[in-house]
């Protein structure tokens, strides 16, 4: 399934909760969650570990808005809103970790 997280990993536990139970599929980081996939962030190790079992995406416009586009870690794919739509269509179920 597609897991959608929109919280900074340093403020809330949504990313931790998602990665704890997720069984593969894809992870899309949006809004404040995009910080999790930026160089030097304390959550990067968790993202890197997650990449072994799932595809990881970030919403590019959210990275741009936050001035973090040049810090995206390798192996994470940046998508636009059209890519977001494609991901939702690709996976039969999705869950927003609010």
């Amino acid at each position: 399934m597609l897991h959608i997280v929109n919280k900074s990993p340093l403020e809330r536990n949504a990313l931790d909760a998602c990665l704890r139970v997720a069984q593969g599929g894809a992870l899309l980081l949006t809004e404040d969650a995009v910080y999790a996939a930026t160089r030097g962030n304390a959550a990067v190790e968790k993202i890197t570990a997650a990449m072994a079992g799932m595809k990881v995406y970030v919403l590019g416009p959210d990275l741009d808005a936050r001035g973090m586009s040049d810090r995206l870690i390798e192996g994470v794919t940046s998508v636009g809103y059209d890519g977001f739509v494609d991901l939702v269509a690709e996976y039969p179920t999705n869950q927003s970790w609010l």
């Binding site: 399934m1 704890r20 139970v21 997720a22 069984q23 599929g25 039969p92 179920t93 999705n94 869950q95 927003s96 970790w97 609010l98």
Partner: peptide
């Protein structure tokens, strides 16, 4: 346990999170 929970979620059609 967490992994079983994750597997259960995978069997759903619609997941609403609050």
């Amino acid at each position: 346990p967490k992994a079983e929970m994750g597997k259960l979620m995978e069997t759903m059609d619609v997941v609403l999170s609050f």
